[in-house]
Simulated scan of single mutants.
Amino acid sequence: MEDVESQIIEAVEQHDSDSRLRVLKDVAAGTCGGIAQVLVGQPFDTTKVRLQSAPPGTYSGALDVVTKLLKSEGPLAFYKGTLTPLVGVGACVSIQFGVFEGMKRLFGAHNKSNGISSDSLTYPQYYISGSAAGLANSMLASPIEHVRIRLQTQTNTVPRQFSGPLDVIRQLRQASGVAGVFRGITPTLLREGHGMGIYFLTYEYLVNKDMRDNGIKRTEIPGWRLCIYGGCAGYSVWMTAYPFDVVKSKMQTDALDPAKRQFSSTIDCFRKTYLASGVKGFFRGFVPTILRAAPVNASTFYAFELAMRAMG
């Protein structure tokens, strides 16, 4: 009897150990994907934010932003505020992938217990898993993106408004407390909750279709096809969630002093953006974002899949 009990205890402990190790691998692979995402996407993101937040008429388009930025601030200006996202986005993407993979296992176990194949989930299950990942990530992504955007939109005027990421946080807290650091959290939740649901659903659909059509395992899918699927996932998220990102950027580049702010809330920002520019106002900066979507998300998923294969 004691032998049976010891075997059960050992099996449970082994399961817990394996589960913790799986989570660590998911998070580590997600971090690799996040670092790749930042290094590839930062120049595109800087261009996008300048277009989104500048007063109407400042730039004629993405190419105009690039030209003026190179002329007045030099090529390194495209990597302004990179340190914050390099650390932060690595953490954000690790949360996204960690939560998503955890939700996949949860739904897989649920399906198996109900006599359904656990090899792949239903489309709603993939969407819910992605949404959960996005919502979990939002609480970290919102302040990180706020700090990055403040630095990205800072010009070379002397003296500079912010000396670095910590100074941005200090000034935001002085002006509005902790709430100031988290300004833009509502549109971030909307963007991430819906966007990540579509994002992961698109990628998993394409991966599962490839495995089914070609009779291969996930680890046997060539890297170039993973890149294509990642790029498609990137297109899907921005085509469905971009207006939320515009509103978030507008709120996060508004005046530090609450008394001088143009937008009092998320709804107010939506309303004023529409009154000023109509529907097209919610798609300013869309071109550099779409150009960015393919290489950035291709590199993100490719780095994640390679890391997962390497760790087993």
Results as ranks from 00 to 15, higher is better:
Q154F: 01
T253H: 04
S60D: 07
D245L: 11
V40H: 04
G61T: 06
P258E: 03
M311I: 03
G278N: 04
S17W: 06
F263W: 08
Q252I: 10
V246N: 05
F78H: 13
I216L: 06
A141R: 01
G184N: 05
Y79N: 02
S60W: 05
Y199L: 14
I221A: 10
R183L: 05
S117Y: 07
F78E: 03
P187Q: 04
S113I: 10
W224F: 14
S236Q: 02
G98S: 01
F107C: 04
V158A: 09
Y205M: 11
R292T: 12
T155R: 15
I116F: 11
L226W: 08
Q174L: 14
G230T: 12
G180A: 07
E192G: 04
Y235F: 14
D257V: 06
R105E: 13
F283S: 05
S264C: 11
W224C: 09
V23M: 10
H110W: 12
V40D: 01
V246Q: 03
V178G: 00
Y126R: 08
Q14V: 10
A136M: 01
F286E: 02
G33P: 07
S264E: 14
M308H: 01
L39V: 14
Q42S: 14
T202M: 15
S163T: 08
C32Y: 03
I9H: 11
G41Q: 04
L190T: 07
S249M: 08
A36Y: 08
S129R: 15
G115W: 07
N137Y: 06
N137S: 07
F44Y: 04
F182C: 00
G230Q: 13
S264K: 14
S129N: 12
F100E: 04
L63T: 11
T122W: 12
S72F: 10
T153D: 12
L189A: 10
T67L: 09
V147M: 12
V178T: 02
P56G: 11
N111G: 10
L306H: 00
F100R: 05
S277L: 10
G195Y: 05
L140V: 14
F100N: 02
I9W: 08
R148N: 13
L24P: 02
Y203F: 14
D18L: 08
G285C: 00
H15N: 07
R50F: 07
G195W: 03
E101N: 05
P55S: 13
S117R: 00
G41I: 04
N208F: 06
V93T: 15
I267M: 13
N114S: 15
W224Q: 12
L306W: 09
H146T: 01
S265F: 10
L189W: 05
A29N: 06
D213C: 11
S176Y: 02
S17Q: 10
P124S: 09
Y242F: 14
T219N: 09
Q96K: 12
V40R: 00
S299C: 15
A136Q: 03
V207G: 00
S138K: 01
R160K: 03
S138V: 04
A133M: 08
D167R: 02
V247R: 01
Q152A: 09
Y203V: 09
G81M: 09
V4L: 12
K209F: 15
R105M: 10
D257Y: 07
R160V: 05
R261M: 00
A132V: 13
S113A: 15
S249H: 09
I116Q: 15
Y59P: 10
